[in-house]
Computed example of a mutant assay.
Amino acid sequence: MLAAAALVAALAPPAHAAVQGEVYVALGDSAASGPLVPNQVVPDLGCWRSDHNYAHLTAQAIGARTFRDVTCSGAKTKDMYESQGTDLGSVAPQLNALSQDTTLVTVQIGANDVGLTGFIEDCLNLLPPPVGDACNDDYIENGQDTWRLKTDALRPKLVTLAADIRARAPQARIFLVGYATYAPPNGCYPRVPIIRADANYIRATLMYFNRMLAEQAAAAGLRFIDLQTPSVGHDPCAAPGVRWIEPYVPAAPAAPFHPNALGMRNFATVVTAAVTAAVTAAVTAAVTAV
């Protein structure tokens, strides 16, 4: 048995070589597509998709054999299944990009289902209290946090989505990608004009949202990639050249409160490491099983 194991170990391809054979499909919304990050690619210009988003950079890093990026700004979970309308025309359902030979899938979705963009826009406050008005109490109805209710309502949709991805791509390793840090404790008013209470509310609700994503990934048998932890200290309050997420008035090419090129490079490092680790574990398990 030892001789057989040694032979398999000698013949098994190293992890990086195994990754190079991947057929990689990237699904997701604007956090994945990279609106305004150079260079925006055709077709589907209405999706505001960058050729330097983390999916493109990950595909290059692992030497993917085939790569299909169908991430699209504004996407919701329903746009996995239905054509999505954009300012420049409609695009096909994202799940159409999957096939029986797909071996790697990343999906970052859900923020638009719960209204994250509108939520952050509502919290813009050019004047502090008592002149300016806090936004966090706008999301409390009958003593319940509506943002969290919407987050919890997304749970079964993600489990269903995971099953549908797996049905279309039965060979694939599937990674559910979380969202970055958008506010440090207490914020940084007035540099980013979100008052302290609202910054803490945004931070808490996004942490809850990412925790939900991690829980649903586990429930569905997916791998979860945490972008919140590595992006601490690189939020919109950080200085240009340090931050990975741009504030209301970007200093680097990116949409407000979306990743810039530096952020995408760092997210690609995280995603590439997760993908490579999964392949390494699979190769090791195969050798050990002999």
Rank of each mutant, 00 (worst) to 15 (best):
A197K: 00
D87C: 02
N186W: 00
D164I: 01
G263L: 01
C188I: 00
G63D: 10
A31F: 05
A277N: 10
A217L: 02
L116G: 10
A255Q: 12
A3F: 02
V275W: 01
L213Y: 03
C123T: 06
L88F: 10
R243C: 05
F175D: 09
D29C: 06
A31H: 10
G34C: 09
G34L: 03
G187R: 02
G241R: 07
R211V: 00
H52I: 00
P185D: 14
T272D: 13
S50K: 05
I225F: 09
L98Y: 10
E246Q: 08
T276H: 05
L127R: 05
S83I: 00
A163Q: 12
T229D: 12
V242I: 13
D145K: 01
P130E: 06
Q228F: 07
F267I: 06
T66F: 11
D235Q: 10
V242Q: 15
L88E: 13
V107Y: 01
F119V: 03
A254Q: 02
T151I: 12
I62C: 10
T272V: 01
L149R: 14
L126M: 13
F267D: 03
A111V: 05
T272L: 05
M264K: 06
I140A: 07
L161G: 04
D69R: 07
Q20R: 14
A180T: 05
A75T: 04
D198N: 03
I165F: 07
A261N: 13
A273D: 08
R265V: 07
M264Y: 13
D101A: 13
L227R: 03
A97P: 12
G63S: 08
G63H: 08
A172Q: 07
A12Q: 09
E246S: 06
V131L: 14
A268I: 00
M1D: 15
E121Y: 06
P128R: 10
S33E: 06
N142L: 02
R265N: 10
S33L: 06
A18T: 08
S231M: 04
A55P: 10
A285Y: 04
G34W: 02
G110C: 03
L2W: 15
P129Q: 08
Q20D: 12
N260I: 02
D164K: 04
A217V: 03
M80C: 11
C47Q: 09
D145P: 01
A92G: 14
D152W: 01
L27F: 04
P240V: 05
A180D: 08
G241C: 08
N260P: 08
A238C: 04
P128S: 15
A12P: 06
P259H: 03
I140V: 14
Y201G: 02
L36R: 15
T272S: 12
R265Q: 14
Y182T: 09
A217M: 01
I165H: 06
Y24G: 11
E82K: 08
T66D: 12
A204E: 14
T146A: 04
G21H: 10
L2Y: 11
N136Y: 02
D79R: 05
L57R: 06
V159G: 13
G241K: 04
I174A: 11
A31V: 01
I109E: 13
K76A: 15
G118T: 03
C237Q: 10
R223H: 11
